[in-house]
């Protein structure tokens, strides 16, 4: 896949976003929060299972 058209589209979109950069920053923060939470869920489950195993040795 040639990256040229994608890069051009992203550059053009960045120019369109410029007037709304405040809103874009809030959206970016929301995206980071969402991605961080999605990544942390499996780890949280791992910790939960480890704790359950410690609490109930049969598991």
């Amino acid at each position: 896949m040639t990256l040229g058209p994608i890069v051009r589209f992203v550059a053009r979109s960045a120019a369109w976003v410029r007037p709304y950069r405040g809103l874009a920053a809030v959206i970016a923060l929301g995206l980071i929060l969402e991605a961080a939470f999605t990544a942390s869920v499996p780890l949280a489950f791992r910790m939960l299972i480890a704790r359950l195993r410690r609490a109930i040795p049969i598991c």
Partner: peptide
């Protein structure tokens, strides 16, 4: 995250 996601969806649609 659900609340932030909904708010983010609205903001993104508006932008």
């Amino acid at each position: 995250v659900a609340a932030a996601g909904l708010w983010r969806d609205y903001l993104y649609a508006r932008v």
